[in-house]
């Protein structure tokens, strides 16, 4: 009797512990409002004419020519002890972000802003894991907290410091990636990976984990 009762007590305790662990995990999303504010931020407005009607804006009709872009080369997340190589990438044949094949390499969206640009989102996307190669560079991305640092070294060798302001976990279904890839809004660094529930049939996660950081 005592033995069985003790066993039951241990089981109950274990169940309670699991429940406490499950409910006590950090909230998947923090700082979402900060992200919205960054996305809709406008650059400082030039002082308008003090008198009279505002003039219609006029710009030179010059043909846009390719401008030098500073590509990121490495990303370091000190709080996670992660350093990863960064390679330029674009979209795949389905129009999705082409995450580099190696789980250790993080992709930089070369069709968006590079480093040091006055507006827009520098996007880095990396694997949380892969079926064949195990844990990826962004395996623990969801553990980043607001205030953590992200260091990005550019192709010029210079290091840029960013401070995490938000971590979001959003269902992929209905997720509009456009604001996260925008060339406008405040300058920011956006780190992407997968998370949430795993569908082992489709070998795909339900959510994206999105960390937003701002230049320090």
């Amino acid at each position: 009797m005592r033995r069985v009762g003790g066993f039951a007590a241990v089981l109950v305790l274990a169940g309670v512990l699991i429940a406490v662990w499950w409910t006590g995990r950090p909230a998947p999303t923090v700082g979402a409002q900060a992200v919205r504010a960054l996305q809709s931020a406008s650059p400082p407005t030039p002082a308008s004419a003090p008198f009279g009607a505002p003039a219609v804006p006029t710009v030179a009709a010059t043909v846009p020519t390719p401008q030098p872009v500073t590509a990121p080369r490495t990303l370091t997340l000190p709080s996670l002890g992660v350093t990863a190589a960064v390679e330029p990438t674009g979209v795949d044949e389905r129009g999705e972000f082409a995450v580099p094949p190696s789980v250790d390499v993080v992709g930089w969206y070369r069709l968006g802003p590079g480093l040091d640009e006055p507006t827009g989102s520098v996007v880095l996307g990396g694997h949380v894991d892969s079926a064949t190669d195990g844990p990826g560079a962004f395996r623990r991305l969801a553990e980043l907290e607001p205030g953590d640092e992200a260091l990005v070294t550019g192709q010029d060798g210079g290091e840029r410091r960013y401070r995490v302001v938000a971590r979001e976990q959003r269902p992929k279904q209905d997720l509009d990636l456009a604001p996260y890839f925008a060339r406008d809004g405040a300058p920011r660094l956006t780190l992407f990976t997968c998370g949430g529930d795993f569908d082992s049939g489709a070998r795909s996660y339900s959510d994206n984990v999105i960390v937003t950081a701002v230049p320090v």
Binding site: V99, G136, A182, T193, S200
Partner: peptide
């Protein structure tokens, strides 16, 4: 528009956070 339509960044399942 022109932004990517998706961010497929995991096929392993080790980071599954669904309820155990």
């Amino acid at each position: 528009g022109g932004a990517p339509t998706g961010m497929p960044a995991g096929t392993g399942g080790a980071a599954d956070t669904s309820a155990p």
